[in-house]
Design a protein around this nucleic acid. Structure first.
Lengths: 145, 145
DNA sequence: AATAAAGTCTATTTAAATAGTAGTCTTTTT
DNA sequence: AAAAAGACTACTATTTAAATAGACTTTATT
């Protein structure tokens, strides 16, 4: 399951993506608008900023805005920032590989390949979906979330 | 991430799949062999049994064995028993649908479709992989887990 | 019939991870 | 100088996963 952190991150990016014509948005406003606990959102935005996805400005009139085009921000990358690995087992992770500790012998474990396939299938979808796609779908009247 | 419960379940099924020519295997033996905490394994086996995947026999000479052919036990079904939904968001779940609570308005949420696609991609892999496949791969010398 | 060897079932405890909060510091504008 | 923002770190609470405990039931053996 996706963590709330990730859901909040996506929501924030979508909101900022829609706000792109306007001046930067303050954390407090964003938190209220998206119903996200303010201090929690603060941390999330910081992470996204430190990863280069957001631009922030301090002081009066400051706030947050996207640092990239919404079409260039892919959900995979966001998930990796907020939730870590995409794979369901650490040993099948591309970016966060770790040895599985239930597994005494990597050579004789029969499930890794399956979960690498799952990972690849997931990656296929998530690395093609951008924040812009999410925004586009919202207005489409499709049933979502 | 897969829970330990699920990993243990898969391990147990694999071990029982290999034990199919022999008399039923006792929980204690299985726990020792697979290095799974005994009482925890006990619960897991019960779940698998109640779902129809295992046969158990009480009393002296009793124990557990597969109740289906290993080729007919698919990982999807096991995951659903031990971890619940396959989807990453409740509103994208086929078997465990729930409304997402961060989402005030299902109509205007842009991420559901993406996570339905992810779910379908995952399902595609997991519903084609059986315990027999896992066993077959073990002996293949492929690097796993 | 008695005993021992198993599994069954439910409740509880512990530990880890997630979610959320608090507070102080820094930068920028007015 | 003051006020309005974000930056950063530490802490607390809540939830979920993992593990443990114990009393009960069934079956085989003697």
């Amino acid at each position: 399951m996706l963590s709330k952190k990730t859901k909040y991150a996506i929501k924030a990016l979508v909101a900022l993506g829609k706000n792109v014509e306007n001046p930067p948005m303050q954390i407090v406003r964003l938190a209220e608008q998206e119903m996200i606990p303010r201090k929690f959102l603060e941390q999330i935005l910081l992470d996204l900023r430190n990863a280069g996805y957001l631009y922030s400005k301090k002081g009066a009139g400051g706030g947050y805005s996207l640092n990239k085009n919404a079409a260039d921000i892919y959900l995979v990358d966001i998930l990796r920032i907020t939730d870590g690995p995409i794979a369901m087992v650490p040993c099948a992770s591309l970016k966060f590989y770790r040895k599985c500790d239930e597994c005494h012998d990597e050579k004789t474990c029969g499930i890794r390949k399956t979960f690498i396939d799952v990972r690849d299938a997931t990656l296929e979808v998530l690395s093609k979906t951008s924040v812009a796609d999410v925004i586009a779908r919202e207005s489409n009247g499709e049933m979502m979330f």
